[in-house]
Amino acid sequence: MSTTHHPHGIDELCEPGAALYARALRAGRLPHAAVESAPCLLDMGLLQPDVADAGLLLPTPPAVALPRLLHTIEEDVTLRRQKEAALAEAFSPLLALDADHRAPAGDSSITALKGLESLRKAASRAAAETREEVLAIRRGKRYAESLDERRGIDVGVLKRGGRLRTLYQHTSRHSPVVSAHFERLGAYDFQARSLDHIPERLAIFDRKVAFVPSAEDPDLAVEVRHPTLVSYLVSMYQELWRSAVPLFPRKAHLPAPEGFTARQRAIARLLVEGQTDARIAERLGMNVRTCRTHIGNLATTLGSSNRAQLGYLIGKSGMLDDPE
């Protein structure tokens, strides 16, 4: 096996360097000439001159050297991220300029938006152009944190005589934050409905432009101006809206077929899909402890003693059957 040394950064311990470093640790010291086979050990601070003998090198203890090297790498990563942020900031006005000179909305157009600020600016531009309606989906824990910010965009459209239709999860029906948000918009043409399950957040402005977030990356979204794709998203939204339960201004009671609540049915459906407690809680906008309490109550109701049996009993109970 070759032990020829090749230059490299301090984030790598090469084979010749590792061998010489091990030799130094065993011997306690090395002659200065030995480092010629792996000069990287000096750059990495793994060997240091012996103050008592200039011709010798002493090994730095691994417990000291490793944290020092990791810290150096972390500093490098931080610097790279700062450069990324600076580059993104430099391109921000250029992206805005490109959006201002973009082809008409009737033309095919799909644009990736990275970062909350880019998405906020693009959504504000779309809202400023909106005169008729906004169709929105709000899902998960993060939606409540953005309601105040969203209200500014929503009210702007509503004050111009537009209408706002929003879909929420059933778990939002008892949220005081959401209720307060409804009251602020109640004077306008605003309606809300809820479902057990809804897709990731979505916003469609005047059926011309849509913003679709990435499920994997919360800082990534896609601005869609392709007429066919926007039309498809509108059709999907209308289907969800028709099957949803009124929430505002008229709050209808949730159906509970066979004695099961809508929340129990939502949890049961995700359990059968094999989702973890944490994932179920995230999908339904609740904390894990509350989710586990509901799962325990469901298991008690169905007489289940373990998770595998619970899945079987859920299927057998008919609670997931579509109502006729």
Rank of each mutant, 00 (worst) to 15 (best):
L79S: 15
E75C: 12
S37G: 06
R80Q: 13
L79T: 13
P61G: 01
G28R: 10
A65M: 05
D53I: 01
A24I: 02
I73M: 14
H32T: 06
L69S: 05
L58D: 07
R68F: 07
A34D: 15
D53C: 06
P62F: 08
L47A: 02
P61S: 02
L56G: 03
L58I: 05
V35F: 03
L58Q: 07
P39L: 00
L56E: 05
L46D: 04
D43Q: 14
D50A: 02
L57C: 08
P39I: 02
E75V: 10
I73C: 12
V64G: 05
A65Q: 01
V64M: 11
P49M: 03
G55C: 02
E74M: 13
G55Y: 06
L42W: 03
V51Y: 14
L58E: 00
A52R: 15
L47M: 05
R80E: 12
R26Y: 10
G55V: 00
L25V: 10
A65T: 02
L66F: 12
T72E: 11
L42P: 01
E75H: 12
L47D: 08
T78Y: 12
L47E: 01
M44H: 06
L46P: 03
S37Q: 14
L41R: 10
C40E: 11
T78K: 12
Q48H: 10
L42S: 00
I73W: 15
R80F: 14
P59G: 00
P39Y: 01
L56S: 06
A24H: 09
L30V: 03
E75S: 15
R68A: 15
L47W: 05
R68D: 13
D50R: 05
A24P: 06
L25I: 03
C40W: 07
A34G: 01
T78G: 15
A38G: 06
A34K: 05
A38F: 08
A34Y: 01
L70T: 08
A27M: 09
G55S: 07
D43P: 02
L25F: 07
A63E: 07
D76G: 12
P49E: 03
L79E: 15
L56H: 12
R80L: 15
A65D: 05
C40T: 08
D43V: 01
P62Q: 03
G45F: 07
C40V: 10
E75M: 11
A24T: 08
V77H: 11
D76T: 13
G45E: 10
P61F: 00
R26W: 03
P62E: 04
E36Q: 07
D43E: 14
D43I: 04
S37C: 12
A27S: 14
R26T: 04
A34W: 08
V77P: 06
L42Q: 01
P62S: 02
A34E: 15
P31C: 05
A52F: 13
P59M: 05
L56M: 14
P67Y: 02
L69E: 10
S37L: 10
R29N: 10
P67N: 04
P59C: 08
R26M: 08
A63K: 04
V77T: 00
E75T: 12
P39E: 06
C40F: 06
V51T: 12
